[in-house]
Amino acid sequence: METLFIPNENDFKRWIKEAVKDFLQEFTKKKLKEEHNEEDLLNRKEIAKFLRVSLPTLTDWIKRGLPSHKPRGRVYFDKTEVIKYIKENKIGQLKFGSRFERLRQEIG
Protein backbone atom coordinates (compact mmCIF):
# COMPACT_ATOMS: atom_id res chain seq x y z
CA MET A 1 0.00 0.00 0.00
CA GLU A 2 1.31 3.45 -0.94
CA THR A 3 1.76 6.24 1.56
CA LEU A 4 -0.46 9.20 0.81
CA PHE A 5 0.97 12.68 1.37
CA ILE A 6 -1.58 15.27 2.40
CA PRO A 7 -0.17 18.80 2.35
CA ASN A 8 -0.99 21.07 5.25
CA GLU A 9 -1.30 24.84 5.39
CA ASN A 10 2.44 25.36 5.98
CA ASP A 11 3.29 23.28 2.90
CA PHE A 12 1.05 25.46 0.74
CA LYS A 13 2.54 28.65 2.23
CA ARG A 14 6.08 27.41 1.58
CA TRP A 15 5.24 26.44 -2.02
CA ILE A 16 3.60 29.79 -2.71
CA LYS A 17 6.49 31.67 -1.11
CA GLU A 18 9.03 29.76 -3.24
CA ALA A 19 7.01 30.33 -6.41
CA VAL A 20 6.67 34.07 -5.74
CA LYS A 21 10.38 34.37 -4.91
CA ASP A 22 11.36 32.59 -8.16
CA PHE A 23 8.96 34.74 -10.16
CA LEU A 24 10.29 37.99 -8.65
CA GLN A 25 13.89 37.02 -9.34
CA GLU A 26 13.14 36.22 -12.98
CA PHE A 27 10.91 39.29 -13.37
CA THR A 28 13.57 41.60 -11.90
CA LYS A 29 16.27 40.20 -14.15
CA LYS A 30 13.97 40.43 -17.18
CA LYS A 31 13.00 44.02 -16.32
CA LEU A 32 16.67 45.02 -16.05
CA LYS A 33 17.37 43.46 -19.44
CA GLU A 34 14.51 45.43 -20.96
CA GLU A 35 15.70 48.67 -19.38
CA HIS A 36 19.24 48.23 -20.65
CA ASN A 37 18.41 46.42 -23.89
CA GLU A 38 21.19 43.97 -23.06
CA GLU A 39 21.30 40.21 -22.81
CA ASP A 40 24.60 40.35 -20.92
CA LEU A 41 23.21 40.99 -17.43
CA LEU A 42 25.27 39.14 -14.83
CA ASN A 43 25.00 38.59 -11.08
CA ARG A 44 27.91 39.05 -8.64
CA LYS A 45 29.29 35.52 -9.02
CA GLU A 46 29.09 35.59 -12.82
CA ILE A 47 30.82 38.97 -13.16
CA ALA A 48 33.49 37.98 -10.63
CA LYS A 49 34.19 34.85 -12.68
CA PHE A 50 34.24 36.90 -15.89
CA LEU A 51 36.68 39.41 -14.36
CA ARG A 52 38.63 36.64 -12.59
CA VAL A 53 38.49 38.32 -9.19
CA SER A 54 37.17 37.31 -5.78
CA LEU A 55 33.84 38.54 -4.43
CA PRO A 56 35.54 40.78 -1.82
CA THR A 57 37.61 42.38 -4.60
CA LEU A 58 34.45 42.86 -6.65
CA THR A 59 32.74 44.52 -3.67
CA ASP A 60 35.70 46.88 -3.31
CA TRP A 61 35.53 47.74 -7.01
CA ILE A 62 31.79 48.46 -6.70
CA LYS A 63 32.54 50.88 -3.86
CA ARG A 64 35.12 52.54 -6.11
CA GLY A 65 32.66 53.07 -8.92
CA LEU A 66 32.28 49.86 -10.94
CA PRO A 67 28.80 50.24 -12.52
CA SER A 68 26.14 48.01 -10.99
CA HIS A 69 22.37 47.96 -10.62
CA LYS A 70 20.62 47.06 -7.36
CA PRO A 71 16.91 46.42 -7.82
CA ARG A 72 15.26 44.96 -4.71
CA GLY A 73 18.54 44.23 -2.97
CA ARG A 74 20.03 42.13 -5.78
CA VAL A 75 23.16 43.31 -7.54
CA TYR A 76 23.41 42.93 -11.31
CA PHE A 77 26.00 44.07 -13.81
CA ASP A 78 25.60 45.05 -17.43
CA LYS A 79 28.56 43.34 -19.07
CA THR A 80 28.99 46.04 -21.72
CA GLU A 81 28.91 48.81 -19.07
CA VAL A 82 31.59 47.02 -17.05
CA ILE A 83 33.82 46.53 -20.09
CA LYS A 84 33.36 50.17 -21.12
CA TYR A 85 34.16 51.32 -17.56
CA ILE A 86 37.34 49.24 -17.47
CA LYS A 87 38.47 50.60 -20.85
CA GLU A 88 37.80 54.25 -19.96
CA ASN A 89 38.75 54.35 -16.30
CA LYS A 90 41.87 56.23 -15.29
CA ILE A 91 43.73 53.82 -13.03
CA GLY A 92 45.96 56.45 -11.44
CA GLN A 93 43.04 58.30 -9.87
CA LEU A 94 41.48 55.32 -8.14
CA LYS A 95 44.40 52.98 -7.41
CA PHE A 96 42.59 49.78 -8.32
CA GLY A 97 45.71 47.65 -8.31
CA SER A 98 47.49 45.29 -10.65
CA ARG A 99 44.49 43.00 -11.28
CA PHE A 100 42.45 45.87 -12.65
CA GLU A 101 45.36 47.05 -14.78
CA ARG A 102 45.83 43.52 -16.18
CA LEU A 103 42.13 43.31 -16.99
CA ARG A 104 42.19 46.70 -18.66
CA GLN A 105 45.08 45.61 -20.87
CA GLU A 106 43.31 42.34 -21.82
CA ILE A 107 40.05 44.10 -22.72
CA GLY A 108 41.43 47.27 -24.26
Rank of each mutant, 00 (worst) to 15 (best):
E88Q: 03
R64L: 06
K70G: 03
S68M: 13
R74K: 14
N89A: 04
P67E: 01
H69I: 07
N89C: 11
E81L: 01
H69R: 06
E88V: 15
R74W: 02
K87A: 15
R64M: 11
E81H: 10
I91P: 08
V82K: 01
L66E: 05
Y85M: 10
K84Q: 15
I91Q: 10
F77W: 02
G73H: 09
H69F: 04
I91Y: 08
L66K: 10
V75W: 02
Y85H: 04
K63Y: 06
R72I: 04
S68G: 02
K84H: 10
K84T: 14
D78V: 15
P67H: 02
V82R: 00
D78W: 03
K70F: 04
S68T: 03
R74N: 06
K87H: 09
I62E: 13
I62M: 10
P71S: 12
I86M: 03
V75T: 10
R72C: 04
V75N: 09
H69G: 05
K79M: 07
I62P: 00
K84G: 00
K79H: 08
E88H: 15
Y76N: 11
I86Y: 05
D78Y: 00
I83N: 12
E81W: 07
Y85T: 05
Y76M: 09
R64A: 05
G65I: 08
F77E: 00
V75S: 00
